[in-house]
Every structure is written in structure tokens, then in C-alpha cells.
Amino acid sequence: MREIDARILIEPLGALIGNALVGVDAATRALIKEAARAERSPAARWALGVIEENNEIAVRSRDFACQDCGLAVLFVSVGQDVHINGGLTDALNEGVKRGYAAARKSVADPLTRLNTGTNTPAVVHYDVTDGDKIAITFLAKGAGAENMSRVFMLTPSKGEAGIIDCAVRAVTDAGANPCPPVILGVGVGGTMEKCALLAKLALTRGVGKRNPDKRVAELEDKILEAVNATGIGAQGFGGGVTALAAAVETFPTHIGMLPVAVNIQCHSVREGRLII
């Protein structure tokens, strides 16, 4: 049994977040560059060029790539051979607070709308795994894209075409709002909350990485093709690149259910990983 003090997570998590908020994910930036070259609509090409330049400026001057540094979402996998002294959730929130010290504070009580002033609490999803490590994945979720995310409770008869249609409907209804080009996390199966969690988890896989299951990877390709056929384009200016990638995660579901969640991520992908 490995024993650790929860407080040792604070500093590295704060540093991880601080860096993630200025540096848009490298794989996403490469896809934006590629999209800017391929895009034929002048307005959308202009927008993609602005985004490219913005992401370069952000890294160079250590400015926040987007002023909406989002709500902090943490996936925390705790090895079952670790014993943690002190409050783990408290330590994580302290790390988040430090990581957002210079950032805009975007977290408020849902009813009073009073800002918490620290960008905490984070949304933390815990998981127990083998081993004696703690793995943390951080994802900054801004309001623009998260607000456009959806859960659909399909009947099994809708099948694969129904799943693709959910992604197209979510992206079409969202239009320009979630700052396209977007990345789609699609959760299929489980229950209502499980598919939502899978959709979020899909966004942490690494942008552009395909599902190792060939059948699922083919579904990802079909979703991406269908979404890009909508013609929404970068920033909703009309064009061929509405989404840069689609990631699907699945989980067995009830014989009478086909839950589908579509979690939309804007092009400003700010994420990071840490293993302690």
C-alpha cells in the first residue's frame, strides 16, 4: 500500500491547468491548420486563419487562448493500492483554484448566480483502477459549446443511422454558437447519465485518435462526414469544416434502450494529464 498526502497534488495540478489554458492542444492546432488549407469558403477560411493566429499568440505571449477558461472537469483514476491522507477533493479544488488564479472566474451558483470567485468547485469524476497511482485528466469546458450538448434517448430500432442523426441534429441546432470547428464526443449506450459521461470521456481521448474498435471507428468516420456535410463551417460562416474530429465511446445498454449523448467541444481544446 502506497501512502500519499493529498496536498502533493495541488501544485502539479495548478501548473498543469495554468499551462493548458494558454496552450491549445497540439493535435487540434494541426487539424485547424489542415482545415484552413482545405477550406474553400473565403469567410470560413478567414476565421480559421484568425484562430490559427490566435493560438500562436496565446502560446507566445502566455495569454489565455479564450477568455472563457471554462469550468474545470477532472477525471480522476485512483489506484486501489493508494492510501490518501487528507481530503482528495479538497486538494483537487485547491489545485484548480491555483491553476485559475490569473484566469477569468466563470463559476457561479446556479440559482443565485453569485460567482464563487475561485473558479471552483471543479466537476470531478472518480474512478477506481488497479495499481498505486493517481491519474488526473483536466478538461476546460466553456459555456458556448457545453450549452449546445444534448442527450437523446433513442429506441433500439433507430440503430446506427439514429446515432449519426443525433450528432447531426445537435450540431445543426447549435449552428455557430459552440464556436465551430468543433470536436464531438459521442457516448452510446449505458443509461442517461452513463452516455453523457462517455461523451465527455470521449473528448479526453486525444483529438483525432480513433477508437481502437474498428466498428466504432467506422461510426466515428460516418459521424464526421455527416456533420461536415451540413455546410455550417467555421464559426457558422458556411463551409466544409464544421467538425475536426468525432470520438465515440460505447457501453452495453438495456435491451429496450439506445441512449446517445453528444458533447460538443469548441476548437479551443485546453486539456492536460498528470500521473502521480
Binding site: E53, N54, S61, C66, G144, Q235, G236, F237
Partner: peptide
């Protein structure tokens, strides 16, 4: 008028 969403660092300048 539409500004490019997610271009906060550029717009700052």
C-alpha cells in the same frame, strides 16, 4: 457583427 469565437488572445491586441 460576428467576432471569431475563441480568438481572445488575438482580439486583446
Amino acid at each position: 457583427l460576428a467576432a471569431v469565437g475563441g480568438a481572445g488572445a488575438l482580439i486583446k491586441n
